Simulated scan of single mutants.
Amino acid sequence: MPGGRLTQQERQQIALGLADSLPYAEIARRLERPTSTVTREVMRNGGPTGYRADLAHRAAERRAHRRKPVSPRGPEPVPQLGGRDADAVRDFEEMLTTVLMQSGLPKMTARVMASLYATDAGSLTASELAQRLQVSPASISKAITLLESLDLVRRERDERRRERYIVDDDLWYQSMIRSARDNAKFVEAARQGVTILGPGTPAATRLENVARFLDFVSEGITRAAEQAREVLYTRAEPAAAATTAPTAGRD
């Protein structure tokens, strides 16, 4: 199986495979590459509908150029915990950023969220994020404000009174519950519209159908989120200790 970076010809084959609606696994098989390589390549370069081989290749060349050390005496890269490949970690963050952007987040907001998820601590300060992403503190502040409004990050002050932005297991639960509540507000508004527009009219029927759909889906989201939170995040209790001592045998 070939290794190393993708060539321009391989990227053209990926583009052709996407145009033919081939799954990533099949494209990877034809290239004799891991499926993860193809998935990462596509997701970081516009996704399956926006992938362009020439643009992807130029972007890869720019990244490779940026990673070349300016001087052999320059600072050593920060070692990654557990011997991680720094380039692979950077590639993962870029891929996750692309996925988050495709879900609707602005680019900077997606970059901040990807950086937070790629840290073992799950938290960074504004200055750490600004240094890590090479952007201004104002850009970080704007991104954090949006993520907080979506219940995707929370902030705490550390022992040095610095604000730390945190991602943890419970945030996705909170985000799902928030989504269900937003749906409930729309359901209420839609049913008011049914009354105003007149039951049985095309507009009222449309609103009633939407309300029923969202009501059903929201109930399922809430129930599933509660169950997942209980099952996935709750640790099993230790077995109860025996309450009676064994009876000594007779001689």
Rank of each mutant, 00 (worst) to 15 (best):
Gly4Leu: 12
Arg5Cys: 00
Arg5Glu: 13
Arg11Val: 00
Ala15Trp: 01
Ala15Val: 00
Leu16His: 11
Leu18His: 00
Asp20Tyr: 13
Pro23Ser: 11
Tyr24Ser: 02
Tyr24Lys: 01
Ala25Gly: 01
Ala25Thr: 10
Ala25His: 07
Arg29Met: 03
Arg29Thr: 05
Arg30Trp: 05
Leu31Lys: 06
Arg33Leu: 01
Ser36Phe: 04
Val42Pro: 01
Asn45Val: 02
Gly46Val: 09
Pro48Gly: 11
Gly50Lys: 08
Tyr51Asn: 01
Arg52Glu: 10
Asp54Ile: 02
Leu55Ile: 03
Ala56Phe: 09
Arg58Gln: 09
Arg58Asp: 08
Arg58Cys: 04
Ala59Met: 05
Ala60Val: 01
Ala60Met: 10
Arg62Phe: 11
Ala64Gln: 15
Arg66Leu: 14
Lys68Thr: 11
Val70Ala: 15
Val70Cys: 09
Gly74Phe: 13
Gly74Arg: 15
Glu76Tyr: 09
Pro77Gly: 07
Val78Glu: 14
Pro79Tyr: 11
Leu81Ile: 07
Gly82Asp: 02
Gly82Leu: 05
Gly82His: 04
Ala86Met: 00
Asp87Arg: 15
Asp91Met: 07
Phe92Asn: 08
Phe92His: 12
Glu93Thr: 02
Met95Tyr: 04
Thr97Gln: 09
Thr98Leu: 05
Gln102Trp: 06
Leu105Pro: 01
Met108Ser: 09
Thr109Gln: 01
Ala110Gln: 05
Met113Gln: 15
Met113Lys: 13
Met113Ala: 12
Thr119His: 14
Gly122Val: 09
Gly122Pro: 06
Leu124Ile: 06
Ala126Pro: 00
Ala126Phe: 01
Leu129Asp: 04
Gln131Arg: 14
Gln134Cys: 09
Ser139Ile: 03
Ile140Trp: 02
Lys142Asn: 08
Lys142Ile: 07
Ala143Gly: 06
Leu146Glu: 14
Glu148Thr: 09
Glu156Phe: 06
Arg157Cys: 00
Asp158Tyr: 12
Glu159Ala: 12
Glu159Met: 09
Glu159Arg: 12
Arg162Gln: 15
Glu163Ile: 13
Arg164Tyr: 05
Arg164Phe: 05
Arg164Ile: 12
Ile166Glu: 07
Ile166Met: 06
Asp169Tyr: 06
Asp169Arg: 13
Asp170Ile: 09
Gln174Ser: 01
Ser175Ala: 15
Arg178Ser: 05
Ser179Trp: 08
Arg181Leu: 11
Asn183Arg: 10
Asn183Ala: 14
Lys185Gly: 04
Val187Pro: 01
Glu188His: 11
Arg191Leu: 14
Gln192Trp: 14
Ile196Asp: 11
Ile196Tyr: 13
Leu197Ala: 14
Leu197Ile: 00
Gly200Pro: 08
Pro202Val: 03
Ala203Leu: 15
Arg206Leu: 13
Asn209Lys: 13
Val210Ala: 14
Leu214His: 14
Ser218Val: 04
Arg223Gln: 14
Ala224Cys: 02
Ala225Glu: 01
Ala225Asn: 02
Glu226Ser: 00
Gln227Phe: 04
Gln227Tyr: 02
Thr234His: 13
Thr234Cys: 07
Arg235Val: 10
Ala236Asn: 03
Ala236His: 04
Glu237Lys: 09
Glu237Asn: 06
Ala239Gly: 09
Ala240His: 10
Ala240Glu: 15
Ala240Leu: 13
Ala241Gly: 06
Thr243Asn: 08
Thr243Lys: 12
Gly249His: 03
Asp251His: 13
